[in-house]
Simulated assay, not measured.
Amino acid sequence: MNPSGSHPLTFFDFFDFIWKLTPVGRQFKKDCDFVHSVAEEIIDKRKETLDKTADETDRKYLDGTGRGLTKLEIRNEVDTFLFEGHDTTASAISWVLYSLAENTECQRKCQAEIDDVLEGRESDDLEWSDLAKLEYLTMCIKEGMRLHSPVPVVSRDTENVFDLGDRVAPKGTKIQLNIFALNHMENLWGPDHMEFKPERFSKENIDNIKHFQYVPFSAGPRNCIGQNFAMNEEKVVLTKLLRNFTFRLDPNHKVKRVMSAVMRTKDGMYMFVEKREFLNK
C-alpha cells in the first residue's frame, strides 16, 4: 500500500520522479513540507532564545570539530524526537502493561510504589524529582523492553573494513543486530529468559549485565538520541495508568508477537481495565 493507504503501489511508483507526479506523491510531499515546517519553527525559536541568552564564549552547542550542526542535521534530530519515537514508545508501554497484567504481583508492587510517591498530593501529576523515585517501575520497564524488544532489529552500514574475527566485512556492508535474539540468549540471561523478572535490573543485579548485553536503544555513536526522553515518557504514562487502573489479560485471547520495524501483535492485545475504587474518583 502507498503511504495514504488508498491504493496498491504499481511498478512505476518505485521510480521517485514518476511517483512524485502522482496524486499520492504530491500529497506526500505536501505532508512532509508541513512536518518539516513544524520542526523548523521549533528550531528557529530555540535558536532565537540561544542568540539572546548564550555567551559568545559558550561552545557547548558545537560538535567535536568546533562547528555546529547544519539546520538540516538539526531538523533530522528534531524529527526523531517529534515523530519517530511515538511508535516505539507506544509499543514499549503496551508490552510493559501486558507483562504487568500477566504478572499481577509485579503490577501491585508498581502501584504501591506510585501510591507512595504521590501520597498526600492533590494531583496525580508527577514532578521531575519523582521520576528517580520510581525504581521498581523502572525495573519493570527495562525488563519489559528486554522481554518484548519494542525495536527488535537495528541496522548499520560499515564505513570501514570491519573485522568480525572469523571473517571480514568489507566497507559498505549492511549489518543487522537482532536485539530480540540478543535479549533471549540463554548464556546471557539464563534458562528463564522468556520469563518476566524485573529483579534482573535491580541495584544488586545490574552490575552483572555485561556491556552491550542490553541495548534496547542500540548503542555507540548512532544510538537513540531520544532514549532518556522515551524512558521518562514511559514512566509518566505508566504512572498515570497504574495509579488509576488495574489491568487484567483476556484469558480467551492469545497475544502473538509480530516482528517488524516495531514489535507488534498479530491480532491485538486485549485487556480488562478496572478503576481503582479506593482512590474515590
Rank of each mutant, 00 (worst) to 15 (best):
N2L: 12
P3D: 00
S4Q: 08
F11H: 07
F12K: 07
F12G: 09
F12V: 11
D13R: 02
I18P: 10
W19Y: 15
W19R: 07
G25Q: 01
K29D: 11
K30G: 08
H36R: 15
A39I: 05
E41N: 14
E41A: 15
E41M: 14
E41Q: 15
D44H: 11
D44I: 09
K45T: 13
K45A: 12
R46D: 08
E48R: 12
K52W: 11
D58L: 03
D58N: 11
K60C: 08
K60V: 04
D63A: 07
T65R: 14
T70N: 04
K71R: 15
N76Q: 14
V78M: 10
F83R: 13
D87A: 01
A90I: 06
S91A: 10
A92G: 00
L97F: 04
S99V: 09
C106M: 04
C110K: 00
Q111L: 06
A112P: 07
E113A: 07
D115Y: 04
D116I: 11
L118V: 04
E119F: 12
E119M: 13
E122M: 10
D124A: 11
D124L: 11
E127S: 15
K133E: 11
L134T: 04
E135P: 00
E135T: 13
Y136E: 03
C140I: 01
C140R: 01
I141R: 04
M145I: 06
M145V: 06
R146Q: 01
L147M: 06
H148F: 08
S149I: 03
P150Y: 04
P152R: 01
S155C: 09
D157K: 02
D157Y: 13
E159P: 06
N160Q: 13
D163F: 08
D166F: 12
A169D: 03
N178D: 15
A181S: 08
N183C: 13
N187E: 14
W189N: 05
G190W: 01
G190N: 06
G190I: 05
G190A: 09
M194S: 15
M194N: 15
F196C: 08
R200K: 05
S202C: 07
K203T: 08
E204N: 03
D207T: 09
H211E: 11
P216Q: 03
P216Y: 01
F217D: 05
N223E: 06
I225E: 01
E234T: 10
V236Q: 01
L238N: 01
L241G: 01
N244V: 00
T246F: 02
F247W: 02
R248N: 12
R257D: 03
S260F: 03
A261V: 09
V262Y: 02
V262S: 07
M263V: 05
M263C: 08
M263T: 11
G268L: 02
F272N: 13
